[in-house]
Write a protein that binds this DNA or RNA. Structure first.
Lengths: 231, 231
DNA sequence: AATTAAATTTAGACAAAGCTAAAAATAGAT
DNA sequence: ATCTATTTTTAGCTTTGTCTAAATTTAATT
């Protein structure tokens, strides 16, 4: 019961629950040294704030988050690294499910949610290799590198943007007359800021916000608009 | 909190621990209506008999084992079915790891031990399909069918036999003169009963028992001898 | 600056899965 | 048939992760 291997104890032996908390904190922005409230975490994870407090203490003990009572939590460098490794696994498994097993867009999340907790570095590296080192998951979100780097591509198709992200319109893929006319008619112009509010699984159409007003656009349109992500 | 869906509650929502117990009981022979002692289970699982007793009660509650105090446990039909579905998953994942990700013989078990608990029927069916419905895992053990049938092949290569299994020598694959001379010299003849005592991971050689005496044979030999399993 | 509303933490409880130590039942040997 | 020795179970405690309800701190408003 002695303190044999602090490194192993603190960083490798993560429980499923701990990993889920780190992932959530990262997604809520707590990797940018921003403090995330216990309430926000509780809401996201569909649990109670008091449970979050308990876990915050535990993760703080392990050096994975900075936690100040009543002030919320933010990930430490070690916490960010761990969160990224889980997100990497999640997204690689999503690619695997879609590319190798013909899962659809909307089926992958639940299963990847389980697979991301499998503990084997070799396994995920081999999956990465099998998939030929994909850069993005099926939703267009970037896959962190093995050494925990986030290679955020700053130009992408609007259809690949995650929900709640926003960017400036920087180009078109289809430059046909009908398409450009459509953009003009709908006051979509280069330089406009567009925020993705929601995606409809049924037809992949998007609800977006532009210049303060909301609108819905089809997947075909979104898949031909390049935007530069800025948040 | 009402008793909404008994089927779901009893059969689908299995914990990892419950699944591991069922698998162990099956492997110890408790599927053949034979009673397995709590001590045997505890030893196999590297836990304590008292913990096994607790779980026996729980699994009995759920209708997965028959448990009589001081008499041990045996799997019910539902228990056998569940155990086989876990074993099926374990073995399919092993094949996947070896065939698709270049894992070696000895690396697969630990990872498959985790993967077997992933809950997604579609996932394992798709893996099965990807692998073109293999009949045996990398160790030569049979993969149960989706509807829980064990298709024990009664003829297999000696090199594919699991440790502690035994069979009667029924044929050769390589019928070249040098090979047959070797068999003759070592008194290995059709009709002999051979028991696999141990496998050496390093060179895949086997320690076997034949006619009461022990000997070691290379993988190349074992991979060219057909035996008919009989226990 | 004081008071109230909202957010957060503490305290105490629970279920799952395990352990230890003591009690009870079975089985083996005489 | 009785008595040990072994096996098995019970009772009570531990840890992890969760919850509820009560207490406390922060923030917002007057």
């Amino acid at each position: 019961m002695s303190n044999k291997n602090v490194f192993l104890e603190k960083y490798f032996l993560m429980t499923r629950s701990e990993e889920n908390y780190l992932k959530t904190i990262f997604h809520l922005g707590g990797g940018d040294s921003k403090s995330i409230t216990t309430n926000a975490i509780a809401e996201q994870m569909e649990t109670k704030p008091s449970s979050v407090t308990d876990m915050a203490k535990k993760l703080s003990e392990k050096g994975l988050v900075d936690y100040v009572r009543y002030q919320g939590v933010s990930l430490t460098d070690a916490g960010v690294k761990t969160a990224l490794s889980i997100i990497r696994k999640h997204r690689l498994w999503e690619v695997f499910l879609v590319k190798k097993l013909d899962f659809t867009w909307d089926e992958v999340h639940e299963v990847a949610e389980q697979l991301e907790h499998i503990k084997s570095e070799k396994l995920i590296d081999k999956i990465d290799e099998l998939l030929e080192f994909p850069k993005h998951d099926p939703h267009g979100d970037p896959i962190p590198t093995k050494d925990g780097k986030f290679q955020e591509r700053d130009e992408k198709l609007l259809s690949e943007m995650p929900i709640n992200s926003q960017g400036v319109c920087v180009g078109v893929k289809d430059s046909s007359v009908p398409f450009l006319k459509f953009l003009d008619k709908n006051k979509i112009a280069l330089g406009n800021t567009i925020k993705v509010l929601d995606k409809e699984d049924f037809d992949n159409s998007l609800r977006i916000q532009m210049d303060g007003k909301e609108m819905r656009i089809s997947h075909q349109i979104a898949a031909n608009l390049y935007v530069k992500k800025n948040d």
